[in-house]
Amino acid sequence: MTKGGKNLIILGVVAILVACTTTGVALAIYHNSGDIYLDRSRPGFLPDEEEIEEREEQKEENSEFSEKGEVSAEVLEEYLEKLEDEVDGVRRVSEPFSDEALSNERLGI
């Protein structure tokens, strides 16, 4: 084998090692920082089709509050009405993270 051929092989091996190392470090950071638990693009955690449709519908419906303009009782009335729509969305989830999900009864212990 020529010297050039050997160097090419060494270059290939080193490149693979560097790639594996950097990928490993990135995954470790991803896991340890907690981002993995906020990431819904991983298998088994992808949003359902219904969720995607609901989000797209919401984007069309909502007109948000602007930071520019006058402030009057009517403007604040409108603000409170729009805000109430968002708050209704939050309230649609009843008892989020309640004790019941991990109770002995639920787990059958």
Binding site: Y37, L38, R40, P96, F97, A101
Partner: peptide
């Protein structure tokens, strides 16, 4: 389920 709820609530909190 908790992951879904977190994203759902998180997006509303962010928007509000």
């Amino acid at each position: 389920e908790d992951s879904k709820i977190r994203v759902y609530l998180g997006s509303y909190y962010e928007k509000i």
